[in-house]
Amino acid sequence: MLVTNTKGNYSFIRGIAPYSAGAVAGEGYEIVHARFLQPIPLSSGFERVRGHLAGIKRPVEALCGMELRSPRPFTFQGFNDFNAGYVRVLTGWGVVVDKMNPVARTNVAPEVAAPSTPSLYGFSYTVPSSTKKKTFVVAGAGELPEGSLDPHDVVRRGETSADALREKARFVMGLMTARLKELGAGWEMATSVNVYTAHPICEMLAGDILRPMGASAIHGVTWYYSRPPIVSIEYEMDVRGCEREIVLS
């Protein structure tokens, strides 16, 4: 069941402490996606988000998505430690709703040109709008069951054969489909579908990724040559449905 974020003008899928599983704009609002030309160190990135929202007269509670880039994948413990500091900032902003973090997130480690420190790549937020279209962001997810950060739950853990990667991709597609459904959306509403892996995807692209997307497969997917945020996770995806996307310098 979706949780309403009244101050932010969106509803979200309850996730785990560091992030929600996705967000959908409320009636009379739409989600706008912004990214930077180059990632910004996270501490400065938070201030850029706050400044951008203030500049368009939106409250910090309008923040509904964050996209991070890290120097390298974390260990599970390192990921938990990083998340603690990240959540402290959002809690300090007053963004947390009934002890739940409403902000969706994707965090990956580029294989080429990775930043030297955890950095902000992009973010999403709500604005007043007359659009009748549903706009949404689905948080990044790898081959782990919903709600788990247990390394023993990784699908085909430690395997990177073509068969294992195909099973991982199918599992993640299932997560994306379920999250879309919970947001009241579907693949046909997606405007951006992103894949994050350092492994080849060509063999599974048509049958396991594009065909399940239905009509939206015409738009293809964007493959980021990156690793998911935690060692031993090999494949991640996220999805957006936005009418407006902007680039910030």
Rank of each mutant, 00 (worst) to 15 (best):
W187T: 04
Y196D: 00
L90I: 13
V96C: 09
E27R: 14
H219V: 02
L248Q: 14
L149M: 11
S130Q: 15
A169T: 12
A139F: 03
G65Y: 12
H33I: 11
G94R: 11
M173N: 04
V89H: 12
V247F: 03
R170H: 06
G51Y: 10
E47G: 06
R14A: 13
L149T: 13
E182K: 09
L180I: 02
V127S: 13
G85S: 13
P145R: 01
L63D: 11
P200N: 05
V89N: 11
I40H: 10
V49D: 05
V89E: 14
G85V: 10
K99F: 07
F123K: 09
E167D: 15
F79L: 12
G140W: 04
T75W: 02
V193K: 05
T106L: 03
P200C: 02
T6I: 14
T117E: 15
F123C: 06
V112Q: 07
A139H: 13
V137E: 05
F82Y: 11
R48G: 01
G22K: 04
A190K: 05
G174T: 14
W223H: 07
F123M: 04
G8D: 13
V127K: 13
F12D: 08
I230Y: 02
M204T: 01
E203K: 08
D81P: 02
P128Q: 09
E236H: 04
A25W: 00
F171I: 15
K134L: 14
F74Y: 15
E61W: 03
G174H: 12
T160W: 03
G92N: 14
P71I: 03
L144H: 00
T126D: 08
N5W: 08
H219R: 11
L68C: 06
V112K: 15
P228E: 08
I16D: 09
V3H: 15
P115M: 05
V154A: 01
K133H: 14
E146G: 00
A54N: 13
Y86G: 02
M213Q: 10
Y125R: 08
Y125A: 00
A25F: 00
L210A: 02
A62F: 04
A178W: 05
S129R: 12
M237N: 03
L175H: 07
T126L: 03
F46L: 13
I233G: 00
L180F: 04
L183G: 01
F36W: 11
P151H: 03
A141E: 05
L205G: 06
